[in-house]
């Protein structure tokens, strides 16, 4: 049995990698993938705690998070396509329409 702490530190690490990618990268698509990484870090956390407490609730949460992630991916990618049509770019630096 692998100790719970290993899983928790691993999920923290995955979440941090996602945050790092979101902060450092300029490409919209890669930033979006980093959001998925963050969601996965949280999912791993919930599943490992569900295993620890022997309760299904954590796994149901993960199931719902996956649904939300799917919806988010569909809408977000549609926004990226609309942005690309207007600006011919997938770089966040070009998202400056509201900049004064």
């Amino acid at each position: 049995m692998v100790p719970l702490s290993y899983y928790l530190f691993l999920s923290g690490l995955i979440f941090t990698i996602g945050v790092l990618g979101f902060l450092v990268r300029r490409n919209l698509l890669v930033m979006f993938m980093c959001i998925e990484l963050m969601l996965n870090g949280v999912n791993l956390f919930l599943v490992s705690l569900a295993r620890k407490f022997g309760s299904m609730d954590g796994q149901i949460f993960v199931f719902l998070i996956m649904t939300v992630a799917a919806a988010e991916a569909a809408v977000g990618l549609a926004i990226i396509i609309a942005f690309f049509r207007n600006k011919k770019s997938a770089n966040v630096d070009d998202l400056n329409l509201m900049k004064w």
Partner: peptide
């Protein structure tokens, strides 16, 4: 998992 995540970034 960790290496693939780093490579994504």
């Amino acid at each position: 998992l960790v290496f693939a995540s780093v490579l994504v970034v």
